[in-house]
Design a binder for these strands. Structure first.
Lengths: 131, 131
DNA sequence: TGTTGACATAGAGTCCACTCTAGCGTTTAT
DNA sequence: ATAAACGCTAGAGTGGACTCTATGTCAACA
């Protein structure tokens, strides 16, 4: 099944502009052209999906480019690509834990915010605060 | 206990530049000055910690400013601040789930990447691919 | 007293990831 | 055959969050 750029955009929830931008940045070096027009295959959509995951989990575009370039070279170097992915996977796990901690902090602060700010703005505004 | 800007930077893992930038952006309107020099109290460090959590979980600076402004007004409006925080909390939960899904996708792709790219670059490079 | 070091401001510059515009070509429907 | 719809490129512009530079003040020390 083949798709135009606008269909690919729909399927991936990216904008047409963004897909072209990614192509320009070397993230889609494998996309075929017919008379200059991009033709997206199912596998290209798969790659765009992975790309979105990587982007959404904070991988910078230049790292994604490195990954795809490794993948395109040959099987030996593709292993490097897998390695990048595995490393990023650990990264994402760390982010998850970090975000969980942030959530806990936010919960804690929600409870203590009123008190925290009453102390800051009610008492300290009126009383002398010796340093 | 009071801190200079450089001590506050150390405690929060922000740079001095960044703290001053946050102040300029109206995120630290409550920080005292002595002869122009910022003096950070324990509570200010608490607020900087929360600020980092919010920033790390994707809250834009203008929203953080709105929050702090609500908190500074009075108790009624402080409730608005709490509401913002609660809303953001749900936001972060959604992000957590999204990131978990991304992690699953990445795991799946790690398994299937070699196959996916062999199909793309080995077969299609040599055979005619009818559209 | 003069140098060092920490503080300050204003504002310019950087980096990233888009996002948009202008201008052009091709296919499709009336 | 002309206009609408969609595709293309090059390149300018945007927005967010820093990051850095130039310049200046002030306090403490040799």
């Amino acid at each position: 099944m083949n798709y135009t750029i606008s269909q690919a955009a729909q399927k991936t929830n990216l904008s047409i502009h963004t897909i072209r931008y990614y192509d320009k940045e070397g993230l889609l070096p494998f996309v075929y052209r017919e008379n200059g027009t991009r033709v997206f295959h199912e596998q290209d959509i798969d790659w765009l999906d992975l790309l979105c995951c990587l982007k959404n989990t904070g991988m910078p575009i230049k790292d994604i480019r490195t990954l795809i370039q490794h993948c395109m070279d040959n099987d030996a170097v593709l292993e490097k690509g897998v390695a990048i992915l595995v490393r990023h996977r650990h990264n994402v796990e760390a982010q998850l834990k970090e975000m969980q901690r942030s959530l806990d902090t936010i919960d804690y602060k929600i409870k203590h915010l009123p008190q925290m700010f009453r102390e800051k703005f009610s008492s300290e505004a009126s009383e002398s605060h010796n340093e």
